[in-house]
Amino acid sequence: MKALVLLGCPETPSQTPMAVYVFNKLTKMGYDTTIAANPAASKLVKISDPEGLYNLNLVDLERTLGEINEGDYDLLVGFVHKDAAASFFVTFDQILQTKSLALVFSRDADEIAEFVTMIEESGSNALITSVRAFHNPSPIKVKFDRAIKEFE
């Protein structure tokens, strides 16, 4: 089983620890997990694991977008905290046509509603979980732990 984790723009502090958390969780669930991120987001995650304890498998987001095909992954998990991240998630979801989970978060409730609507209106069958969060990763962790049970 293979899982792909999509990271958005790294300006949200909670994304980096949650990326490591999600990678670890999916790996323990038996997924061969890959994190796709832009160079800045990728560097934040990579430096968070200086000894390579997690064997984080990081790839370039845009290169991956150019290379993937339907069925390449069994699960897609996306961090959606910006308009662009919603667009990326929907695009990967549409190409891969696989099970997917959108972790929607923002400090702004209106933004959360907007991103959820974008995903829903795309016709995606993704499981969407959303929460107000920015600096503190705990609310996202709680939502993720609950949502990922659907895929166990």
């Binding site: 977008l65 695009t91 795309s122």
Partner: peptide, 16 residues
């Protein structure tokens, strides 16, 4: 077009 369709050598990103 659909998200992921290729235009001018790149996959277009967005909401359909």
């Amino acid at each position: 077009i659909k998200p992921g369709d290729e235009v001018l050598g790149v996959r277009v990103i967005g909401i359909p």
